[in-house]
Computed example of a mutant assay.
Amino acid sequence: MQLKDSVIIVTGGGQGLGRAMAEYLASQGARLALVDLGQERLDEAVAACKTAGGDARGYVCNVANEDQVSDMVNQVATDFGTINGLINNAGILRDGLLLKQKDGEIQKMSLTQWQSVIDVNLTGVFLSTREVAAKMIELGSKGLIINISSISRAGNVGQTNYSAAKAGVAAMTVGWAKELARYGIRVAGIAPGFIETEMTGSMKPEALEKMTAGIPLKRMGQPQEIAHSAAYLFENDYFTGRILELDGGLRL
């Protein structure tokens, strides 16, 4: 797949990994539809993509809302004339232990903590993929859908909700690759380890230091390294149904 002039939707494209991937793809001539919740960040990301050399537009959309996702995909197809790819990157964290005993009382992860992460990180991927794939088939376009999973899909302390969602994303990637291949649509995944983003930047310094010490390469990954890998997946037409692990050799 040629990146130049390809139309690619990036959810969570207003910041972090999403913006980094969008800017890199724009530098290769791709046309980006950036999806996020905040208009201000979208505007900044769109401007950055244009500066990098690609066309871009922003779309305010909650990926956990079925109607909003459907409307967004239809609008992107109208604005750009086609859709060639999707990066399911939007995600949130609501970390916490399943149970924690404090002062003789047991504190529990709330259903809200669980459901909010499942809604965005798992259901959002399902809805976005379903609508984009349907539109691509309708338009007769071929391309790639990338799902952003995580090293935490193997299970991580304090991330019951996040790990469950990212494991589900990895499993859906394999199934969808088999289902959609007949339409010329590939589906692949990227499972980042710990990457320097706003999300990890909010962690306590001592926690970051301890985490980094356990990475064989002794450093966190850079957003540009994930972006470069996303571009590789788009350009390699024989990569499908697999998860690309980018974690510096770390195993949880």
Rank of each mutant, 00 (worst) to 15 (best):
G14N: 00
A77I: 11
D67R: 07
V73D: 01
A20R: 01
E131K: 06
A90Y: 03
V46T: 09
K135E: 07
I190F: 09
V132I: 10
V60I: 14
A171G: 11
N62V: 10
I118G: 05
A77V: 12
S116G: 08
L32S: 06
L233H: 04
R57Q: 15
V132E: 02
F239K: 03
W114L: 15
V73P: 05
A48T: 06
E198S: 12
K166L: 03
K102M: 07
I146C: 07
Q2T: 13
G175D: 00
T212R: 15
A45W: 01
L250Y: 11
G241M: 12
Q115K: 14
R31Q: 13
E225V: 08
L93S: 12
L98S: 12
D119I: 13
G193D: 10
V7E: 03
R130M: 09
T112Q: 14
A227V: 12
V35F: 03
V10Y: 02
E40R: 13
A167N: 05
K100V: 13
Q222S: 15
R251F: 08
V125W: 00
I146N: 05
G18L: 06
Q222I: 08
Q113F: 06
Y59I: 13
W114H: 07
Q75T: 15
L246S: 09
V117C: 13
L122N: 01
E209V: 15
S202W: 00
I185P: 08
Y162L: 04
C61I: 06
E209C: 09
A171C: 03
A167Q: 04
S150W: 01
G91A: 12
N236V: 09
N89S: 10
K102G: 00
V174L: 07
T129W: 00
R242Y: 00
G168D: 02
A133Q: 02
Y162M: 03
E66S: 12
E66Q: 13
T200P: 05
A207P: 07
R186N: 08
T112P: 04
L233M: 15
L32T: 09
L98Q: 03
W176F: 13
I148P: 02
G175E: 00
M1V: 14
T240Y: 04
Y183L: 05
I83G: 12
I151A: 10
A227F: 03
W114F: 15
G168F: 02
E105I: 15
K102W: 02
S70I: 01
Q75V: 04
R19A: 10
M136A: 11
G104I: 13
I215R: 04
V10T: 13
R31K: 15
R153N: 07
G124H: 00
E131G: 00
